[in-house]
Amino acid sequence: MPGYKGHIAGGALFGVMGVVGGVMLGYLALDPLHLAGLLGFCLLGAMFPDTDTDSKGQNLYYGLLIVIDAGLIFMKMYVWASWLGLCAMLPALGHHRGWTHTWWAMLLVPLPIVLIPAVLIGDRSIEPFFRFYLAFVLGYFSHLLLDGELY
Rank of each mutant, 00 (worst) to 15 (best):
G15H: 07
A36T: 15
L35K: 05
G26F: 13
G40M: 11
C87W: 06
R131G: 04
P2V: 03
M106G: 08
D31A: 07
S82T: 12
R131D: 06
L64H: 01
G37M: 08
L33F: 08
L33C: 03
C42D: 10
L86K: 10
H34K: 01
F14H: 07
I73V: 15
R97S: 07
P110Y: 00
P91M: 09
I8R: 04
Y4D: 05
G85W: 01
I121S: 14
V67S: 05
L145F: 12
L13S: 02
V137M: 02
G139V: 00
S142L: 00
T53G: 07
H7Y: 09
L90Y: 10
L35G: 06
Y62F: 15
R97L: 03
L108C: 14
G71R: 02
L39T: 09
I68K: 00
S125F: 12
D52Q: 09
H7E: 08
F141I: 01
L115A: 12
F14W: 13
D69K: 02
L93N: 02
D147E: 14
G148K: 10
L144Q: 03
D54S: 07
A81C: 11
V119Y: 13
G22W: 07
W103M: 03
Y4I: 15
P112E: 00
I116C: 08
L108M: 14
C87Y: 05
D52C: 08
G148H: 12
L90M: 14
Y78R: 03
T102S: 11
H95Y: 10
M24Y: 04
L39S: 07
L107A: 02
V137E: 03
L93R: 06
K76T: 01
S142W: 04
F74D: 02
P117I: 03
G148R: 11
C87P: 01
L64S: 04
L144G: 01
P128H: 03
M106T: 06
W80C: 12
P32T: 06
L107C: 05
A29G: 07
W99F: 15
P32G: 10
V20M: 14
H143D: 07
K56S: 00
L138M: 12
L28Y: 03
P2T: 01
L72H: 06
V79C: 03
L84E: 02
M1Y: 05
G18K: 14
W104V: 06
G11Q: 12
G94R: 04
R124N: 08
H96T: 12
T102R: 13
K56I: 04
W104K: 04
H101Y: 11
K56R: 08
L72R: 05
G37I: 09
V137Y: 05
L108P: 10
L111H: 04
E127H: 00
G40A: 15
L72V: 02
M47Q: 10
S125L: 09
R97E: 13
F132Y: 15
G11W: 13
G21P: 12
